[in-house]
Design a binder for these strands. Structure first.
Lengths: 237, 237
DNA sequence: AGGTAGGTACCGACCATCGGTATGTAATGT
DNA sequence: ACATTACATACCGATGGTCGGTACCTACCT
């Protein structure tokens, strides 16, 4: 009756559906029963692939880390590119994706960064930082050699900047909803992103204004948050 | 038979016992049954004071924020003290407490910052940051006026520094256990705390070496972590 | 002074659901 | 053929939360 699928395929199926359910309802509020129901299998199937629900969470975190690494790696390895440009590229890559999937990112951000998902987020960012930090460290070392950066401890600093960024983004996302009640919050958020960029610039000892960690697309997301149809942009560069 | 206690007294009793149980075993792993057993009351009593287990968590977070504020407030209001000194005092106050209760802090840190308590931590730090940030912002503004600091947006920066600090401390605590397996991790952690201090100095535009956000007592905690009896200190200032 | 109405503080049995286990069985590879 | 994989199903203790009831204090009416 039941068709046996390939091991990795079924496992991916579990991971995918679990991920979207976690995003929807949060890790704690998504039961194993809900997962197996969505996949259309039995409990035994679930515990055949994962020893515990938490192990599934860890595998999700690991996958996220690998994906983050896959994006970052080619940028770092590119020869002949200045360190500052590499940093900008590294952050711009994720920004571009976010801008393209505006609707997705908004709902995703609101739920992923809601503190109902504190554990999920904690695990995923940690893995991502762990795997991405060495790459950023190499960029910083390159910047030191080029004389555009002045950082005493690249490895520690890289880790800190990434953790720092994750924290800032989390705070950012958690306040998105407030914009509805008070549009001024939107300006505050945009300001905080600029302060973040400036802070990183100072930490790296890089020239002011040379980094663009958060580009205009993010600003446009915030701007267009309340009203779906955003008319003329009232930007003041 | 049963003596009726005053409302606030009983509520505080719930909060206190719940807090110590959360610290001991984590939020998720502490059942409502465990709490009422420790307090010595029935299930009905608990749900008479709190609508859900999570509401109790929120009230704990609120209390923590107020306590943090109570420590910071008098330091900020003190007249005639340079901003840099105030910042050092603000951080030293908590450090001193930590050093005195070394044993307590270690167990507390290991559990509080273990990601089993991601939710608890997330709520508490958020409240603390929210309440403490304005005070730090005032210090930064004072530093700007004195010419010892150069910060464009004190409010946002204050918030960021505190969130940043919480993140760093969390990462710090989560790696404490690794020292047992690899003593070199201890050096890494101490280094990361120094990098944190230097980063904040740069963000504030303050003279290098003028901040002491993490004093030697913390270093001594890490040093004495593996062996209980710490003989001669092999410090290299 | 005595009755009683109403609110607060609490009890304890009960419930659906949770994560996880035990055991069985059909399909598949060798 | 036989072991291993890939599930299914029934079941477990524990959990967060509900609910109907009760003891007790206070206030007011007569």
């Amino acid at each position: 009756m039941h068709i046996a699928k390939d091991h990795d395929v079924r496992k991916a199926e579990f991971l995918d559906t679990a991920m979207s359910l976690f995003i929807e309802r949060g890790y704690d509020d998504t039961s194993v029963n809900a997962i197996i129901e969505a996949v259309g299998v039995s409990k035994g199937a679930f515990y055949h692939y994962f020893r515990t629900k938490e192990e599934l969470l860890d595998e999700l975190a690991a996958r996220a880390g690998e994906q983050a690494m896959a994006i970052v790696e080619p940028i770092v390895s590119e020869p002949g590119v200045p360190a500052v440009d590499k940093m900008n590229a590294m952050f711009a890559r994720t920004n571009a994706f976010k801008a393209q999937n505006r609707e997705l990112m908004l709902t995703l951000a609101r739920v992923f960064y809601s503190d109902r998902n504190a554990l999920l987020r904690s695990r995923m960012t940690r893995r991502s930082v762990e795997l991405t930090a060495p790459a950023l460290a190499r960029i910083i070392e390159q910047g030191n050699r080029e004389g555009t950066m002045a950082v005493g401890h690249p490895t520690q600093t890289a880790q800190m900047i990434l953790e720092f960024g994750a924290t800032v983004v989390a705070g950012f996302a958690q306040r998105l909803d407030e914009i509805d009640r008070d549009p001024a919050v939107g300006d505050e958020l945009i300001l905080s992103m600029r302060v973040y960029t400036e802070s990183v610039e100072r930490i790296l000892g890089v020239a002011a204004g040379s980094l663009t960690l958060v580009d205009d697309s993010i600003v446009r997301i915030v701007r267009g948050y309340t009203t779906e149809s955003n008319g003329g942009a009232d930007d003041r560069s």
